[in-house]
């Protein structure tokens, strides 16, 4: 991470659900400019990790730091205000509000925002995501892929430094998936940092520069995609399924 600013850091994160250890002392760093793939088999603790790093789940042990600040006990909206945005594994939109209203919420939640400025930005992002035509429809009427795009757009309205995308390609039509990948790449080139979670390596490998692999609640590899792919532990984890 030489020279690049550290955005989010998890130190020794532990989370237990009943008797199951979902995350066992996981260390995790996202630095500015990363386009990081977080992969691992189902149930390996990826979503739990994301939930802790974005303030949606209080860790049982360890600490989350955003730009060096300790975050324990803070609600998710503080994370959002500090530039940490996220999507959800099962798309969570404001279903009966219009597409435009979905975009306005995060925009207007920012301090010193005005309706005009926020509406203008919202329309620009909707255009960027090819959602302009449906801006007056209730969000729940969109197709699955469009909903994923809208959720990404809603994140962008926060003008975040880092976006955590939880399985953005799941159940998305291949053509829309390519569009989503293009947009992510474009935004990354524009300076945004991404953490993309998926259990399937293929899509992620097309864009990511760094891979983190999880298995059974622990981080088992972290590095360049090629190196990670050759890693024995990773192969074992995937083969062991």
């Amino acid at each position: 991470m030489s020279g690049r600013a550290e955005l989010v850091r998890g130190v020794g994160l532990v989370k237990r659900f009943g008797g199951i250890v979902a995350n066992d002392a996981v260390d995790f760093v996202v630095a500015e400019g990363d386009l990081l793939g977080l992969i691992g088999p189902n149930g390996s603790g990826k979503t739990t990790l994301i939930n802790m790093l974005t303030g949606h789940l209080e860790p049982d042990g360890g600490d989350v730091l955003v730009r060096g600040q300790r975050m324990s006990g803070r609600p998710p909206n503080v994370y959002a205000a500090m530039g940490v945005a996220r999507t959800f594994q099962q798309t969570q939109l404001f279903g009966r509000m219009t597409v435009l209203e979905n975009m306005l919420v995060p925009g207007l939640a920012r301090p010193h925002s005005t309706w005009d400025e926020v509406a203008r930005r919202a329309r620009r992002y909707l255009d960027f995501l090819s959602l302009s035509d449906v801006e007056q429809l209730p969000a729940k009427n969109l197709s699955g892929g469009q909903q994923k795009l809208l959720e990404l757009g809603r994140c962008l309205m926060l003008e975040p430094a880092v976006l955590f995308l939880d399985e953005p390609f799941a159940g998305v039509h291949p053509r829309l998936r390519d569009k989503l990948l293009d947009r992510i790449r474009e935004l990354h080139q524009g300076g945004r940092t991404f953490v993309v979670v998926d259990h399937d390596m293929e899509s992620i490998l097309r864009i990511s520069r760094r891979l983190v692999v999880m298995a059974r609640g622990s981080k088992i590899a972290d590095g360049e995609p090629d190196a990670v792919r050759a890693d024995q532990a990773v192969l074992a984890a995937y083969a062991g399924l």
Binding site: T54, G55, H56, P75, P76, N77, A80, A81, A85, R86, F88, Q92, L93, F94, G95, R96, M97, E101, V105, P106, A109, R110, R154, M157, L158
Partner: peptide, 17 residues
């Protein structure tokens, strides 16, 4: 209304729920 629709997503959108 955002809170009514989805409290978690509202918080993730920066709304002080």
């Amino acid at each position: 209304r955002a809170i009514r629709e989805d409290e978690q997503a509202a918080a993730a959108s920066g709304v002080a729920v």
